[in-house]
Simulated scan of single mutants.
Amino acid sequence: MEDLKKAIMDFATSSKKSKFYFKDMEKAVQETIPDAKSREIKKAATALINEEKLIYFSTGSSTMYGLKGRGQTEDH
């Protein structure tokens, strides 16, 4: 689980975009950890949200993830 969380945070911090879809995050994590399953990645992402390192961003039709404090995802 910690390896997955680290891979997600590495992707989130190195991503040029402030918000990203789960599929993009999943693809990046699976490049680092090839045997990672979607469900495990989702659980790790949820854990990071609970730890307030990542946040959800709803576009209305889909949910995206974002790195907390990056981009226009926070109330100013």
Rank of each mutant, 00 (worst) to 15 (best):
Met1Leu: 09
Met1His: 12
Met1Arg: 08
Glu2Gly: 07
Glu2Lys: 05
Glu2Pro: 05
Glu2Leu: 04
Leu4Tyr: 04
Leu4Thr: 08
Lys5Gln: 08
Lys5Thr: 07
Lys5Asp: 04
Lys6Tyr: 02
Ala7Met: 13
Ala7Val: 01
Ala7His: 06
Ile8Cys: 04
Ile8Ala: 02
Ile8His: 00
Met9Ala: 07
Met9His: 09
Asp10Tyr: 05
Phe11Asp: 06
Ala12Ser: 04
Ala12Cys: 04
Ala12Met: 09
Thr13Gly: 01
Ser14His: 09
Ser14Leu: 00
Ser14Gly: 00
Ser15Gln: 10
Lys16Asp: 08
Lys16Val: 15
Lys16Thr: 14
Lys16Ser: 14
Lys16Arg: 12
Lys17Gln: 09
Ser18Pro: 06
Ser18Trp: 00
Ser18Gly: 03
Lys19Ser: 10
Lys19Thr: 15
Lys19Gly: 04
Phe20Ile: 15
Tyr21Leu: 06
Phe22Gln: 04
Lys23Thr: 14
Asp24Asn: 14
Asp24Thr: 10
Met25Ala: 06
Glu26Pro: 00
Lys27Pro: 04
Lys27His: 06
Ala28Asn: 07
Ala28Ser: 08
Ala28Gln: 03
Val29Leu: 12
Val29Phe: 02
Val29Pro: 06
Val29Tyr: 03
Gln30Val: 13
Glu31Tyr: 03
Glu31Pro: 03
Glu31Ser: 09
Thr32Met: 13
Ile33Val: 13
Ile33Trp: 04
Ile33Met: 02
Pro34Cys: 05
Ala36Gly: 13
Lys37His: 08
Ser38Val: 10
Arg39Asp: 13
Arg39Trp: 01
Arg39Ser: 10
Glu40Val: 04
Ile41Phe: 03
Lys43Tyr: 02
Lys43Asn: 08
Lys43Ile: 09
Ala44Gln: 14
Ala44Arg: 14
Ala45Ser: 13
Thr46Ala: 12
Thr46Leu: 11
Ile49Asn: 11
Ile49Tyr: 03
Asn50Ile: 02
Asn50Thr: 06
Asn50Trp: 01
Glu51Ala: 09
Glu51Arg: 12
Glu52Ala: 12
Glu52Pro: 01
Glu52Gln: 09
Glu52Cys: 03
Glu52Arg: 15
Glu52His: 12
Lys53Met: 13
Lys53Ala: 10
Lys53Gln: 14
Leu54Arg: 09
Leu54His: 06
Tyr56Ala: 04
Phe57Ala: 13
Thr59Cys: 00
Thr59Glu: 06
Gly60Tyr: 08
Ser61Phe: 00
Ser61Glu: 07
Thr63Asn: 10
Thr63Trp: 13
Thr63Lys: 02
Thr63Pro: 06
Met64Gly: 04
Met64Gln: 14
Gly66Asp: 05
Gly66Ile: 05
Gly66Tyr: 05
Leu67Ile: 06
Leu67Arg: 14
Leu67Phe: 05
Lys68Ala: 02
Lys68Met: 12
Lys68Asn: 11
Gly69Gln: 09
Arg70Pro: 08
Arg70Lys: 15
Gly71Asn: 04
Gln72Phe: 01
Gln72Glu: 04
Thr73Trp: 00
Thr73Gly: 15
Glu74Thr: 11
Glu74Lys: 07
Glu74Tyr: 00
Asp75Arg: 14
His76Cys: 10
His76Ser: 05
His76Tyr: 00
